[in-house]
Amino acid sequence: MDEQTVPVQIKGLRDGLLITIGNGEWAALEAALLEQIHARQSFFRGARIALDVGSHILRVNELVALRDRLSDRGVSLWAVLSESPTTEKTAQLLGLATRISKPRPEETRKFAVDDLGNATALFVNKTLRSGTRIEFPGHVVVVGDINPGAEVVAGGNVIVWGRVRGMVHAGAKGDSSAYICALDLSPAQLRIAEEVSAILTPLKSPRPEIASINQDGKLQSSPWEPG
């Protein structure tokens, strides 16, 4: 087998083994890894491994299954390194490390927003619960509520088809013409560009509102008037 076709590469690290998984179908690669471990049982027993899965996108159940299979063989999975943010998130959810002592060069995540100018928006079709943070350079549209403790930070405008009770920051890169509108605007805090406002008097009977920066440079909200 030449270097190119090796699906699974194993390397010693200071605090465990680093296993690099190549490209290809995940199921086959997983089988190849388990076969390697089976073939060298005595070497792997009690080992602590970090798995570099490259660009594979792994869901929670796949990673859980792998971790269980590894632990059945006396191998403990300690970290998962990945280029995919989904996989990283999965690993973090499972309490696995996503960085080892020598971190790989951080790639700056760039959305293809610049090419499209003002036209891009992130569409979020769910309620944002406490602890969720959404950051996007363009506009953000949320269909659902923004609960207390959730945060939305957008370079452009923020439109919410639901209730805003968390923190929303529109025009985060300094665009003071950005606005925030929602069916019910009763936030913990609103920010547009550099302006911060916590004093928006909640309406007794909620109705659609739009918040923007007025001529005096103050953040204010006003009811949305149809027509």
Partner: peptide, 19 residues
């Protein structure tokens, strides 16, 4: 209580993420 409900909301979010 507001604080307990806030934490419950966070936990529900985590449970949804864990499928």
């Amino acid at each position: 209580e507001v604080s307990a409900v806030r934490d419950a909301d966070r936990v529900i979010g985590l449970l949804e993420a864990e499928e």
